[in-house]
Simulated assay, not measured.
Amino acid sequence: MTAVLPTLAVTLSATIALSDLYARRVPNKWLAAALLLAIAATVLPWIGGITPLAWPSLTGFAIGLTAMLPFYAIGWMGAGDVKLFATLGFLLGTRALLPIWVIACLMTGIHAFAILMFRLPRIAYAPGIAMMRQHLYALPLWQRALHARQGRAGQPHAAYLGMATIFVVLHPEWMHWGQP
């Protein structure tokens, strides 16, 4: 695989991670643009007589989509998370999906655990935690983020998928993790 598709995956992942952390949004336009750029990057050199790039993985797209759809169907995951995972499968192939999924799920689990811990009465009302929470909620950036989220709540799983993708692309040996 040439560097074009992993670079596209890292760029998409970074922008999606920021968007999901800030507004809990995974813009469809960004996903569609990444898919179209990946297709163009593989087709245009071939038309010009240059050696074509390796085709993006339709199998990776299908596996990414079908692996996450059940979680969307039962309400554990947003549609943007599913579409992002499918797009990452298209850009990076099937080998990247398992390590990305495992790393992202661990990060989401740690985030969920931290939220649960801070909601325990003993911890949530501890003087330092209560003061930290008041200062955080008063920050203009926090207020803008809450407004941008328009009431959307939940874990920023797409952000963690993006962070995991960046890690896996920077450490390609992880793409062979769990495989003979």
Rank of each mutant, 00 (worst) to 15 (best):
R95C: 02
P121M: 08
P140G: 09
F61L: 10
S19F: 05
S13M: 12
P180M: 07
R25V: 13
L139K: 13
L35S: 03
P156E: 13
L92I: 04
G60Y: 00
M132G: 14
R95D: 08
L31K: 13
G93S: 03
P127F: 05
Y22G: 09
N28Y: 04
I47A: 03
G178T: 11
T51W: 02
L37N: 00
L44V: 14
G93Y: 04
I50M: 01
G93E: 02
A158P: 03
P172M: 11
G93A: 01
I103D: 05
A38I: 14
I103H: 09
L97K: 08
A104R: 13
V26S: 08
M68P: 01
P56Q: 01
F167D: 03
A126C: 03
H111E: 15
I115H: 11
A138M: 07
W55E: 01
D81F: 01
H147T: 14
T108A: 15
L5F: 10
L8Q: 10
H171F: 12
P172L: 14
W76T: 08
A148N: 02
P52W: 05
Q155V: 15
M117L: 11
A148V: 05
M131T: 15
A145T: 01
L120G: 14
T94A: 08
P140Y: 02
F90C: 09
I63D: 02
G78P: 05
K29E: 14
A62Y: 02
N28C: 11
M117P: 04
L106I: 15
P6R: 14
I47G: 00
T87F: 06
L91M: 07
L65F: 13
S19L: 02
L5K: 08
A40T: 00
M175Y: 08
A164D: 11
M107L: 15
G75M: 07
I39V: 07
L37Y: 00
P6K: 15
H171D: 05
R119S: 09
A114F: 07
V102Y: 10
A112N: 12
T165V: 15
L92W: 09
T165I: 15
D81C: 01
M117K: 02
A40F: 02
M117I: 10
L31V: 13
I16W: 05
L58V: 02
A17E: 03
A73I: 08
A145G: 02
W55P: 11
A17I: 08
A34W: 08
I47V: 09
S57Y: 00
A34T: 10
P70E: 03
A73D: 07
L58Q: 00
G128M: 11
N28L: 12
G80R: 00
A159E: 06
L98I: 13
V168Y: 05
L37D: 01
A9H: 01
A40L: 07
M77W: 05
P99K: 13
A9N: 03
Q134E: 14
A124L: 05
I123A: 09
A38L: 11
F61C: 06
A73R: 12
M68H: 05
S19R: 10
R95A: 11
Y137Q: 14
A86H: 05
F71T: 06
F90A: 08
Y160L: 12
Q155W: 09
P127K: 12
L141V: 07
L116R: 10
A67I: 08
L44S: 10
L36G: 07
Q143L: 12
M131D: 15
A38C: 14
A34R: 07
P45L: 03
